[in-house]
Write a protein that binds this DNA or RNA. Structure first.
Lengths: 137, 137
DNA sequence: CAGAATCCGAGCTGATACTG
DNA sequence: CAGTATCAGCTCGGATTCTG
């Protein structure tokens, strides 16, 4: 179970140290990150932040995702209560996906991280090139 | 190459739409997330935010990490310019890891996400249980 | 102490075909 | 349209062993 990485025993053992709090706090942050850190979740959440979308609409917008992965991504977002799925029993079937309030609240910190990424990804790219250049001496 | 998921052709094709910007912006965010969204990077960065640490010191503090994964995590953080590695040619060898200014700047948005996680992970856990309960009807 | 190298199994992923 | 089912390929990650 992902969200119980920090079980009670471990927490108690380290209860006093300052690092324990850092670890505890970050274990939770880490779990959330590994949840939304996959290839598609953030993309989906951010696209849904502008309003409800249908399945194939998302698929087209994202572009590089297989229908299998989009299904799995949406299902796990729904499971975590970030996305609400509404299906209309029409023919052909129609399914809408939209963010829950919880999903919307996630957008803010994600946008903060996105802003950081946007400001620094060139620096990162340069650091990588410099690093890789030193590899081949 | 991770940071070029959004290549120029795609960017041009979608240049006008509003979603294009969402996608473009989020592709970068997504790359960064998939970079730090792995199991250990955030933990390492946050631990280093309190000061330089040695290899086995980090290993002990984190607890559940194999030395292989810690090595790989540190190396890729170093490659991205988030961590500086300093080795002292003593016997036994000693290696210090510390955050670069770039690494420190990452702490802020990550902390924001951590705060969100801390506030909401119980809600998420409940949503999961509710979802899983509905599975078995 | 701080790794590098190797092996190997579990799990993620994409492609493909099928369904209501 | 919006999925499900199945299978093969590949990557990830842990355990173990070896080195300067």
């Amino acid at each position: 179970m992902i969200l119980s990485t920090l079980d009670v025993t471990e927490a108690d053992e380290l209860a006093d140290s300052h690092e324990a709090q850092v670890i505890g706090h970050c274990a939770v942050a880490s779990d959330v990150l590994s949840r939304i850190g996959d290839k598609w979740s953030v993309l989906v959440v951010m696209l849904l932040s502008t309003g409800p979308k249908r399945f194939n609409e998302l698929k087209r917008l994202i572009g590089g995702v297989s229908q299998r992965m989009l299904t799995l991504t949406l299902r796990s977002l729904e499971r975590d209560g970030l996305v609400r799925r509404t299906q209309f029993p029409t023919i052909p079937p129609r399914v809408d996906y939209e963010l829950t309030p919880l999903g919307h609240s996630l957008c803010e910190p994600v946008r903060a991280l996105g802003a950081w990424a946007f400001e620094n990804y060139q620096t990162i790219a340069e650091a990588r090139m410099a690093f890789d250049a030193r590899e081949f001496r």
